[in-house]
């Protein structure tokens, strides 16, 4: 050990094993101690609050919380409210169209962009930038653009298409579809990016093998590539679905739930019943239903993702 140097190093630290064990124990616990505040915050502000809201939904609270217990009465009441059914129906229309169109458009654009496109570096960010905007901004832009008074309608007339008529945003039956239009505009680029990443992750040898096997481009995509994008589809579905259930800002900015109650969704329903209509318990019950909807999508997904990870 002395062959090469005159530099002294620290001697081995020798401590009585009792003290060392204590110190080691502390060191072992340190990570858990450091993590504890974050975890406590999550337990209290997420899970504690969920329990609180769930409890509130079983009380007779109105303007202020009241801590009696009336069982599931509010849920019965909730599902008798026509407004709640409108909200659910709108969510179903909005959710399915939003997810469906975003996926279709996203996949379409991703496949097109994957054709060795010159200028991809410019196009991709253009498709994606709406995702950086607030839904309030998106809502404002589309609100006036779709407004028959000043927007598309007027513009088309000014350009000489006099018979053009587009007043969905003012039309009770069609207003929910304008929410879909704006939401798709905002999110489809993001879905495109997910699919593009999926496409880029596919082993090119598989594509070459399929080409040698005689698959044309159409068959190649339909039979080989799109099935391999399953994980990307799943992720896109989960993200879009939970965004749809939570969507609040866009509806507020675009239509404010109107005309009338035509674009009411569960998120706006919950807010107005809780804070403006002083029916806190009903609002809490609707929030619990929303949570259950999100959980039924997210929990299985997270569970399978985490256990797949553990197997690796």
């Amino acid at each position: 050990m002395t062959a090469t140097s005159n530099v002294t190093t620290e001697p081995v630290l020798r401590r009585s094993s009792g003290a060392t064990a204590l110190r080691r124990g502390l060191q072992d616990w340190l990570p858990r101690i450091v993590l504890a505040p974050s975890f406590a915050v999550i337990i209290l502000f997420v899970y504690g609050f969920i329990v609180f809201t769930a409890y509130l939904s079983m009380t007779s609270s109105t303007l202020l919380p009241r801590f009696d217990f009336i069982g599931l009465e509010n849920y019965v009441k909730l599902f008798k409210l026509p407004n709640w059914w409108i909200a659910l129906k709108n969510l179903a229309i909005f959710g399915s169209l939003y997810i469906g169109i975003c996926c279709a458009l996203g996949l379409f654009l991703a496949i097109l962009l994957d054709q060795k496109i010159r200028g991809e570096g410019i196009l991709r960010p253009i498709y994606l930038y709406p995702m950086a905007l607030s839904f309030i901004v998106t809502g404002t832009a589309w609100k006036w653009f779709l407004d028959p008074g000043i927007g598309l309608d007027q513009t088309m007339h000014a350009l000489g298409w006099a018979s053009f008529h587009f007043d969905w945003i003012k039309n009770r039956d069609m207003a929910i579809y304008t929410v879909v239009i704006a939401a798709v505009w905002q999110s489809s680029g993001f879905v495109m990016a997910m699919f593009l990443a999926g496409l880029r992750g596919i082993d090119t040898e598989i594509m070459r093998a399929a080409a040698i096997d005689g698959a044309g481009p159409w068959q190649l995509y339909r039979r080989i590539i799109i099935p391999m994008l399953r994980p990307a589809f799943l992720s896109a579905f989960v993200v879009l679905a939970h965004m749809a259930i939570k969507s609040y800002d866009l509806v507020i900015a675009l239509t404010n739930g109107g005309p009338g109650r035509a674009t009411e969704v569960p998120a706006t329903f919950m807010y107005s019943y809780t804070f403006t209509r002083s029916q806190m318990a009903i609002g809490a019950a609707s929030a619990v239903i929303m949570l259950m909807m999100v959980a039924s999508i997210i929990v299985p997904y997270l569970y399978s993702e985490l256990s797949a990870e553990r197997q690796q």
Partner: peptide
Amino acid sequence: NELRPSERD
């Protein structure tokens, strides 16, 4: 056994 890696020289 009770020493940390850095203490085992």
